[in-house]
Design a protein around this nucleic acid. Structure first.
Lengths: 396, 396
DNA sequence: CTGCTTTAGTTAATAGATTTTACTAAGCGA
DNA sequence: TCGCTTAGTAAAATCTATTAACTAAAGCAG
């Protein structure tokens, strides 16, 4: 399990301070308007410690004070909020069908967003295009005076757990690309933290980190688009993203769901992606790569062939959800990715399959809630921004 | 991801000390004979800090000094080893076909072991039997003078991530059993740490914790016995065992591998357990529950039906391995459980299926090593003992 | 209005852990 | 024997959190 921190030394006093700072920030993020006393009781730190850290965070523009919060009887406490006015986080998402960038606040509010449709090209050309988009964003008057904490970039494929290198993105045609290095050549004047991660990991991180209220014990985000992948996040006040030995955690598109089934581009047979993925649905329905999938399907109306294809894909998605339930057992499942735009004909079979089977193992237990993000255009990019913030919180 | 520690407060100085103590112990465990200077350079702590902690561990009987280690030129350092003479760790494994207990040293060496075959019975009766076995063990002259650090118990089913409660063990017929409470009534005079965990989790923990040399980034242990489950462990010098929202992490026996396949006792169809598990093989070959599976199969010789059944089961196991590779992506896979005793007719198809398909996603990457434990009778019990040690290291 | 009680937050002193610095110990080679 | 190098220890310094004492602010009773 690769943690987001783990710099060099683990046991120095500085590490302790980082931990407590992250913990205090997490509390304010989850309970906006919390007072110093609230934080102290939640984190189990003393009033004095909390007071000191909060003071420092106020001075650095990470927190701001709000109104007085009357508490029964005694002196009211001062509400604390994340300061959404001094900093900005940048996130970028390199998708198979386009590029997306966002600028957001410490609270996860998206200030600016931009999306261009573009077929896959070389890392070089993509970097040029992305650099231009990011410059436009950063120079926008809406975020002009803000201090940029850094940039997170997501890609549709596994990233090495040790270096920021994209190992493979079949739908992009990229292999072993150190994309941040390429990008930096075209974006020399953007400093702060630079991160590269898999798209589903980043999305999962964002859903967890910017969760309203107390987040669940763990979240799995399933990204169903041209390919299919998932990301897992857990951790109390410091979210961890397991990546595994080679960065393949969550590459569920290539789990075998139908032994002896159709051939997958990975060479195996019966991978989940042969049943639920943009390319599988296109192949089944004869929709060309340069056509818009959603539009093409809408155009076909209530065609029975479409119905069957989407229902089958949905059921395969339900199987994937069930298998994740029995392998990673997240406390919450989130469904996202462009396929969600295909609507209920795909989603309903997935949900009902999962609903019908999830509880057969532990009868009577609480159900696993499923959240569907119907438009997840900027989810991954925002998640990448969240990762930047988590990392910056340790350093600042 | 539930960590093994996480007591109440996270950010006090005491926590730091625990972390460093664990880190230093982990270094000695991995590099027997390391000197204080070696430890300092590996843990990035200073000589002074290491010296102090080592001193304390020597006094408490956790470490012992060995011979001088000449280092090029300068003064030789003093070798350090885990002290195997003062403490003892107890581990117990409640299996579907019997009870196993072990007593082992801080280094993971098994001092005593005991195994009784016994069909499933009630928690109460099992506790009585197990308590007697543990008392026999503890009173054995071989470990008489030692201080017992505690007891770890494993069970064949998911354990709640928050309380030491066995949620469900279908092959035992147990539901929601707080087994430690039951056991304590019959074993009142054994103090120290008491732990309850799933059998595969404990086995995985043990393989990781007592690993010779530097352990891999992560380990998944697949336990193939009456049922089939898996355990995952990761973490640098402090191993973490993810359990998920409900303790179902690694319940891979109920992942769907063959949609529309045979009915499983869990109510779903095509679960992995319908293909690779003691009960599935018995059902396919008509072997009764009270017969010894291995003996019955040996008795049938080279029967073609047996061959086909074992080959099919092996291939399903290979699929499970591949799916775990693409979901948890462990750096090492360990195969254990009583089914391993059925030999190559089962194991070979699994390994070759996995070998043939694992690298199709990231071509040219290092392969994932697979370790087969042919006799894993005491693996889980020893793993439970390892968990006791890890916990005790934080407290002592 | 005053005084009492309660809760919030700050400040100074204390305790505990690591690091820094200086020093001693011990081996090797010229 | 001297010089060099590495190992380990001891005392002082530094940093962090806690403890304890105190101030601040509100509600309530009289």
């Amino acid at each position: 399990m690769v943690s987001t921190f783990a710099p060099q030394a683990a046991g120095d006093l500085n590490f302790l301070k980082k931990l407590n700072r992250s913990s205090i920030l997490a509390t304010v993020r989850r309970y906006p308007g919390a007072t110093r006393a609230d934080i102290a009781s939640r984190t189990l730190l003393t009033k004095a410690t909390v007071g000191g850290v909060v003071q420092a965070l106020l001075e650095r523009g990470w927190l701001r004070e709000g109104e007085l919060q009357p508490r029964g009887g005694g002196r009211p406490g001062r509400a604390l909020y994340l300061d959404d006015s001094h900093h900005v986080l940048l996130g970028a998402d390199i998708g198979v069908r386009g590029l997306r960038v966002v600028a957001c606040t410490l609270g996860g509010e998206v200030l600016l967003q931009r999306y261009v449709t573009e077929p896959p090209t070389t890392p070089e050309a993509t970097a040029v295009r992305l650099a231009a988009m990011l410059r436009t964003l950063r120079d926008d008057p809406a975020i002009a005076g803000r201090h940029c904490l850094g940039l997170g970039v997501t890609v549709p494929g596994p990233v090495s757990p040790v270096d920021p290198i994209l190992r493979l993105a079949p739908n992009l045609g990229w292999v072993d690309v150190a994309f941040l290095d390429v990008l930096r050549e075209h974006l020399t004047d953007l400093d702060g933290i630079w991160l590269l991660d898999n798209e589903a990991n980043a999305a999962a991180f964002g859903e967890f980190y910017f969760h309203d209220g107390i987040p669940p014990e763990s979240i799995v985000y399933i990204s169903a688009a041209s390919g299919i992948g998932s990301g897992l996040v857990t951790g109390d006040n410091f979210p961890l993203v397991p990546r595994g030995g080679q960065g393949l955690v969550g590459e569920i598109g290539h789990t075998i769901v139908q032994p002896g089934g159709l051939y997958c581009h990975c060479g195996n047979r019966g991978c989940a992606e042969t049943l639920v993925s943009g390319w599988a649905i296109r192949a089944a329905l004869g929709i060309a790569d340069d056509e818009n999938l959603e539009a093409a399907i809408v155009a076909r109306g209530n065609d029975a062939e479409v119905d069957v294809t989407l229902r089958r894909a949905g059921e395969a998605l339900g199987i994937l959800m069930l298998n994740l339930h029995h392998t990673l057992n997240p406390a919450t499942l989130v469904l996202g990715g462009s396929l969600m735009r295909l609507g209920e004909r795909l989603i309903e079979p997935a949900l009902s399959y999962f609903e019908a089977h999830q509880n057969d193992l532990l009868r009577g237990t609480q159900r696993v809630p499923v959240k569907v993000i119907h438009d997840s255009t900027f989810t991954a990019a925002r998640g990448a921004a969240a990762q930047v913030m988590a990392k910056a919180a340790l350093e600042a």
